[in-house]
Design a protein around this nucleic acid. Structure first.
Lengths: 150, 150
DNA sequence: CGCATTTAGTCACTAATTTTGACCGTCACT
DNA sequence: AGTGACGGTCAAAATTAGTGACTAAATGCG
């Protein structure tokens, strides 16, 4: 059997992750753009995906998303311009600034969380609720292990 | 519970895929560079991951990797310069060219396949062989479903 | 306290990557 | 022969990623 064929029939962990990631992103942002968030692109996910309603620090977002803090900086600039977040001084640390979602930003967060939940619910329905729950459980373990041993 | 905390404890499918993809890539290419393939970067994976020993067409690689064919073109240029692949005319279609791995390219392919297998074997050992096999089975279904409904 | 070190964030710059549109030659079908 | 689709490349624009240096504030320590 050809290698390309084998990769198609028995994809490795990297291929599965990559295919899943990019098609999840594609569906998510295409559906978000239908609900009024057409200006936000996947890369803004590094901020919006981890943002707290109470506000988050840029360096926390950098750590969680795995991006450099300079990247977070420009993403926040763009999201400020689009009206999704605001920069506020952090009362606990005068060096830091809190990135706080606006009403629009909170709407985006709520909707994208809901779309993700819905997408996963459809998969669960298709493969079986129990099988999907077990899949998520093991996936989380694998992701943690893999991240650690990098 | 804060949203960022919840995302950490119960990551969604996109977050899990992204974390897994990037740490798999990081480990794979760092180990490859220790075995003499230090010039090859993750993005070349779009070509090398799906390449057949018999040679593959650029447009097949584009379709399988999800990249534009222009991207495949530049990746192939770089891999040719590095001595990993050659362009040969496709006997079956005079428009097309076959991307064929050289000896060096085949070595890369064999080694990266082996490293991936090894990495997965370690996960399987940690979470249980059976659980891991079931995880892979469901992951493949989910990836297929997700790719289809994009 | 006073000094060195670390941390949060930004600025400015450079390199790399992705995306677009047009283009040529070949194929498949009529 | 004529037409539309396909395989691949070129060139340019737009987006994204990576570096080094810098300010201000917090932290640690003698």
């Amino acid at each position: 059997m050809r290698r390309s064929e084998r990769k198609r029939e028995v994809p490795d962990l990297g291929i599965l992750s990559s295919r899943t990631l990019f098609s999840v992103q594609k569906e998510l942002f295409s559906r978000l753009s239908e609900t009024g968030h057409s200006q936000v692109r996947p890369r803004h996910g590094a901020v919006l995906a981890y943002l707290d309603v109470e506000g988050s620090r840029a360096s926390d977002l950098a750590a969680q998303s795995g991006q450099h803090k300079q990247v977070i900086g420009t993403l926040v600039d763009e999201l400020v311009a689009l009206g999704y977040v605001e920069r506020q001084p952090d009362p606990a640390d005068r060096r830091a600034k809190l990135i706080v979602p606006t009403e629009l930003g909170r709407d985006h967060m709520v909707k994208s969380d809901a779309i993700l939940v819905e997408m996963e619910a459809e998969h669960a329905r298709a493969v079986g609720e129990e099988a999907y729950a077990e899949f998520k459980r093991v996936f989380q373990l694998v992701a943690e292990r893999q991240t650690r041993t990098k």
